[in-house]
Amino acid sequence: MKRLMSIALLCAFVAASVVATRFAVAGEEAAPTRLGQDAVCTRCHDESETKPILAMYQTPHGVTADARTPSCQSCHGESAGHLVGDKDGKGRPAPDVIFGSKHTPAGYQPSAPLAQTEACLSCHKAGLRTHWSGSQHQTNDVVCSNCHTVHAANDPMLVKVLQPGVCFGCHKEQRAQTHQFSTHPLDAGKMACSDCHNPHGSAGPKLLAKNTVTETCLTCHAEKRGPFLWEHQPVNEDCTNCHTPHGSNISPLLKSRPPFMCDECHDGPHNSQAPYGTAVGGIQGGGALAGGNPNSNAVGRACMNCHVMIHGSNSPTGAFLHH
């Protein structure tokens, strides 16, 4: 019974599309349906494919009622040679545009990066992709399909918990850093790389989403923005003077820790000129004075036991960042 129904549906579709085909070939007004256009390809590349190419119909690209959405040939090219087949015994010619960086199972080589990215940029050139040309990824021949999977119900790049895994395919250092002691919640799935970066190109450094490092960090950490009555110069200029955002062995996401971190910029005021070695370990680390009084300038938070307003202070008594 099911088979009869299938056959009946089949006939109905065939009839409809033959009619559509007829009209178009005759050059009359009726535009082909989007599905009819796709059928040029989905006739052979159907649900039996190993990759779920029909799943595209679940995505925004597959909303056939939206006139802007592409058909198969809009992105993969007219591919007349491929449609015609293997006429001269040398194998079926490749479609016009092959996406990716590896050859396909059938042995077709991927197209040049420019051809691949132009296929997407023809529609997606604005917004986040404004600075694509000349960006770090573009110069390194990264193409859209290296990261995005459009023939799937869910593009991992657009799912917060899955996105970092895609980026880590190339960015191995950052993958290792997300497993360190102090991190942003990337491994926990609460943040994704795109919360700070715009991989499509940006006006900021290192593909950051905003114009500068501080502007990017302050979108979530606005309490450090100020301006404060008493400022701390490295904070105004670049958060990464002290912090390393992907992961660190030193909490909270610091490159180094007091007193040594402070010693990298200060040598003169108060204890920044004093050397501390084993003293930082306190009595237990063997650095205390005999009689056992550790130096509060060296142990624990060291300088920051008292100089606590490290990002700046708005108290009239806070010129030394104590208050």
Binding site: S6, C44, D46, S48, E49, T50, P105
Partner: peptide
């Protein structure tokens, strides 16, 4: 699938 048979032969569907 590995040999791309289904590109030309559907299980119940005629293609090329």
């Amino acid at each position: 699938r590995q040999n791309n048979c289904f590109k030309c032969h559907g299980a119940t569907k005629e293609k090329d």
